[in-house]
Design a binder for these strands. Structure first.
Length: 212
DNA sequence: TCCATTTGACCTTT
DNA sequence: AAAGGTCAAATGGA
């Protein structure tokens, strides 16, 4: 159905479309009669859509590049690590992508979903950080050999910000909210349901803004 | 019963 | 040795 368009592009379009909708909504709420809170929330939504779209673009960029560039917050990494050991080590901290910031207007649920299905496999307290770092790998790691992973850590400076680092590229081709045949059971079907539920909630939120 | 999360132990890197 | 990263048993929810 949507074979010509990748999952990232599809999600990207959704994000941009959502951002446009929220912007239109904000325009309607520019009247002095509207509450400043509503405007603020809408503003947050718009920024979130931008952030997510940018994150997706970042991901795509790394997928194109065979050699992910590396910069982590704390490590200066000015040595020659780029030249040596590039493919040797199983993993180092330098395997992670550039930091991507994601705002969290939906702070009730924690960090925003980036559209992929992640499975949490660990959490660590990081020295000098107020918040623990969570480690995720792609849900399809073993079923499809997808090696993508990500770290999520709440920012010390701004706890509403979640710092997300990605690693690897998604090798999984079964994307949750693309078409799933009724034959598909269990995991994939459930994933699809989850994503659909999120989209539904998003639409409902839009509606609730429109109505009040 | 299946699957995701939690969390302490263990492994790797610096 | 210490900090970061991963494993895997225990736990809990649907």
């Amino acid at each position: 159905m949507e074979k010509t368009m990748g999952w990232e592009q599809n999600t990207l379009l959704n994000e941009l479309a959502q951002g446009r909708d929220f912007t239109n909504m904000l325009r309607k709420h520019l009247h002095p009669s509207s509450s400043p809170e509503t405007r603020q929330v809408l503003l947050d939504k718009i920024l979130c859509s931008y952030d997510k779209a940018l994150s997706l673009l970042n991901c795509s960029r790394f997928m194109v590049e065979t050699k992910p560039r590396v910069r982590t917050l704390g490590s200066p990494e000015n040595d020659a690590s780029d030249n040596k050991d590039m493919f040797k080590k199983r993993k180092t901290s330098s395997g992670w992508s550039e930091q991507i910031r994601v705002c969290s207007a939906m702070s009730l649920e924690g960090p925003l979903d980036d559209g992929y299905c992640w499975r949490k496999y660990g959490q660590k307290d990081i020295l000098g950080s107020n918040f623990p770092r969570a480690y995720y790998r792609c849900t399809h790691r073993y079923s499809q050999g997808c090696l993508a992973g990500k770290q999520v850590q709440r920012s010390d400076e701004d706890p509403t910000i979640f710092e997300v680092k990605y690693r690897g590229r998604h090798a999984c081709n079964q994307v949750p909210h693309l078409v799933a045949t009724p034959k598909e059971k269990g995991n994939h079907y459930r994933e699809k349901q989850q994503v659909e539920e999120k989209q539904k909630q998003s639409k409902e939120m839009l509606l609730s803004f429109e109505t009040g």
